[in-house]
Design a protein around this nucleic acid. Structure first.
Lengths: 197, 197
DNA sequence: CATTATAGCGAACGAGCGGTCGCATGTCAA
DNA sequence: TTGACATGCGACCGCTCGTTCGCTATAATG
């Protein structure tokens, strides 16, 4: 009669949904992976769909905490080298943290079927990072670290390639190290192009 | 006894798989959408999975034709403006052609479940365009249109953002016009940054 | 101690799944 | 005309799905 059963179910669901999709996941396997009987799940959720909705709720909250408010903006770096280090660190987290990876995979898989997943996908994969880096680049321009350009365009030009590499990593995790190197190399290239001498 | 039944089944399958995924699609609905009896499908394919494999075969062939051989490389533009026009035209096709869109969606949805889909996804979303534009940018550097940089890095920095926008379009097709404008704006920005005066 | 709520279990249910079977029909070669 | 083959159909089969049910054991409440 463990207290954390509901959370364990959600974790297992995230794991299976992100691998096989909502339709490709069945309750029996899900509960079995927790050493739980099929029917016991229904003590905690009304239906399979309620699990799905609970997961999307979690993701919405997570997104709000991570990107939703100004106080969670990263500090504006004081040098180009610091920028590279900071973004490398952020990429490291976003690629190695299993829960974040699974969240991304889930949104990738279900974006065409579920409207909430669709909206979250656009935020997670595009606007979230874009807004954050628009702020960072604007700050770096203030500090004369970067040449004056539209910071929004720069944010897009920077975050989109990183996003593509992160997706590559989700797809082929055995290439994680290679991807991390490419992210760093791209960051350096980007700073070389846009940085003030 | 239409001759094209097999092809019609494949088309309908691509349509449904790309929307609901392989697991979320059932044969009854698929055949019904063609005005065909459920069992008639088995005259043309041994199983649901054989349809899936046939679709992947088609995609592999399509990829080979589009990106696989040197003779399908685009001409190297003679001016920065020509580059913008060319890429805009390519984007237009890739975004508006229903079959290409569905292929992309299918690979997006199934990339974590099926190894062949995974490999095709990496090619379609990354290496294909990258190789093509590495060639284009190298050519443009020869013609002194672009400053001399690693053409591979430039290809990545250019194609990845375009890919992200195309994915946005797959997810929210009502934003197609906006996305096309962003692609053009990004292309111009890119030429402004890397182009020789 | 008695009672109630909570959280687990296996059996079973109806629906829907992928797939098979036997039969009907149209086409075409002999 | 006949026989063989290709293509269609609806009925049906066995299985798996999400879900429900009745029951038990433990924990909390008074």
């Amino acid at each position: 009669m463990a207290k954390g059963t509901k959370e364990r179910i959600l974790t297992a669901a995230l794991e299976m949904f992100s691998q096989y999709g909502y339709a490709g996941t069945n309750i029996r396997e899900l509960t079995a992976s927790l050493g739980l009987g099929k029917s016991s799940m229904y003590r905690h959720f009304e239906s399979k769909e309620e699990i799905w909705n609970a997961l999307l709720d979690e993701m919405t909250v997570y997104y709000e905490n991570r990107f939703g408010s100004p106080e969670h903006l990263p500090p504006v770096p004081d040098s180009l080298e610091e920028f590279v280090a900071m973004t490398k660190h952020m990429a490291e987290i976003t690629i190695r943290d299993g829960k974040i990876v699974m969240t991304r995979k889930l949104l990738t898989i279900e974006q065409f079927r579920d409207d909430r997943a669709r909206d979250l996908a656009t935020k997670h994969f595009l606007t979230g990072l874009e807004d954050m880096f628009t702020y960072v680049f604007a700050g770096m321009m203030e500090k004369e670290l970067l040449r004056r350009e539209d910071p929004g365009m720069l944010a897009f030009a920077y975050t989109a390639p990183v996003t593509v590499l992160i997706h590559l990593c989700d797809r082929e995790p055995e290439r994680t190290d290679e991807v991390m190197e490419r992210i760093e190399a791209f960051s350096r290239h980007f700073m070389k192009i846009y940085g003030n001498k």
